[in-house]
Design a protein around this nucleic acid. Structure first.
Lengths: 222, 222
DNA sequence: ACTGTATGCTTACAACGTATACATACGGCG
DNA sequence: CGCCGTATGTATACGTTGTAAGCATACAGT
């Protein structure tokens, strides 16, 4: 009656599964970047030949869709019972943080090729809370798009340009040194601001988020 | 004394040059997308072997940097003599339009690997006009980042999800049909809104742009 | 006229995604 | 118990990619 799957002859390794493949792929990409993900290397990491992966994944694109949606699954959903503004802020911030933790993911989320169920669920939840705020249908629409673009856009920027805080001053100086002197004075001033004002009151993400949520709030009276 | 370059034996084809290579690459990418760009195909388009391109371009990455900066060169710079708000709006809108015309470019602009002189010049000009508005240094900083993320973020979204207006209703219906019924009610409502409200008063881009410029304007009194 | 330098071509290699064909080992059936 | 279809993993192979190395040619400056 042992109705369990029964390990396929215990002496051999545990079998592959879509989950195991995605997990390994995610780990690989988080460590070495998206370009380092190849079917052969992934197979190697799992102790298996590359072609074996195709038993659990349609192709590389499907694999990528899988790991992208795993990141989307991390996003904390807004609680429909809570206050709309708090909940939207929490959800957006959580998504932003996840995208910072998986620097490769934002890129893929920008394309319509990799929308999975978790991603759709997140969108739906955001829209739901926005609608429950009492704002006009127009405002719900625009705020949704603004939020979405802001989350992904800012995350991509952050991920690309963020460096370890202790290296910030030095890296900035090094970059400025590569520029033709005197040609981009305002840009250089901006970079130096970054180096100096290391600890800012708001992050750039919070600034934009506040703009959007304020706009929604102003709309409530209308 | 004919100090001109003198066509290198007229009977042979005109020689390659970095400009010609970049031009051909840009055309190729605009038509067939970034993935269709390969050194061999590009050589073929120029009537030349792939390896010949390396005489004018360091490697594929350098080639890509080159075409990205060509797009950045299209951005209309804000006029420091004009009114800051008009000029920023014009410049941002121009950049947004260029990125829509070259759907592949936004992606590349998100990474720090492909910043060329025109891109830097655009950034510098934006900062210059922002500073001239009289806003506080903090506001200049935040508004700059918000603008940058908004331009690129929104363009990427637009490029990925925009479809020919006449197909919009149909495409939307087709997409909705692929979703498990009843699971994403708000998302479906949102998509239907898109199909119905084809011609909106503002674009999503203009909505976000206004939010940012309004914030700058409010800061002027402070 | 001679010579270095710039340009282009040929060949070659390693890595990639994946189609195809095969081997094995399982669960359900008689 | 034995058979067999299905699920899983492997081996081999093809076409495409970026680009390193070596060679040919044709120019510009002496």
């Amino acid at each position: 009656m042992s109705s369990e799957p029964a390990p396929p002859t215990d002496r051999t390794r545990e079998p592959l599964s879509r989950d195991r493949v995605l997990e390994a792929a995610l780990a690989m990409v988080d460590v070495d970047g998206l370009d380092a993900l190849s079917m052969r290397k992934l197979g190697q990491a799992l102790g298996v030949e590359a072609m074996s992966l195709y038993n659990h994944v349609d192709n590389k694109d499907d694999l990528i869709s899988g790991i992208v949606d795993r990141v989307a699954a991390e996003f904390t959903l807004p609680d429909p019972a809570g206050h709309w503004r708090e909940e939207l802020g929490r959800a957006a911030t959580s998504a932003h943080e996840s995208l910072r933790n998986h620097p490769w993911a934002g890129f893929l989320m920008m394309t319509p090729d990799h929308v999975g169920p978790h991603r759709l669920g997140f969108m739906d939840a955001i829209l739901s809370v926005l609608a429950s705020s009492g704002a006009s249908a127009e405002m719900v629409h625009y705020a949704f798009h603004a939020l979405d673009a802001h989350i992904v856009g800012t995350s991509l920027r952050d991920v690309s340009y963020t460096i370890a805080p202790e290296d910030e001053a030095e890296t900035a100086r090094a970059f400025v040194a590569t520029l033709p002197p005197g040609r981009y004075p305002h840009l250089i001033a901006h970079i130096e601001w970054h180096a100096v004002a290391g600890e800012a009151e708001y992050t750039e993400f919070e600034f934009g988020l506040k703009l959007i949520l304020d706009a929604v709030e102003r709309d409530l009276g209308a």
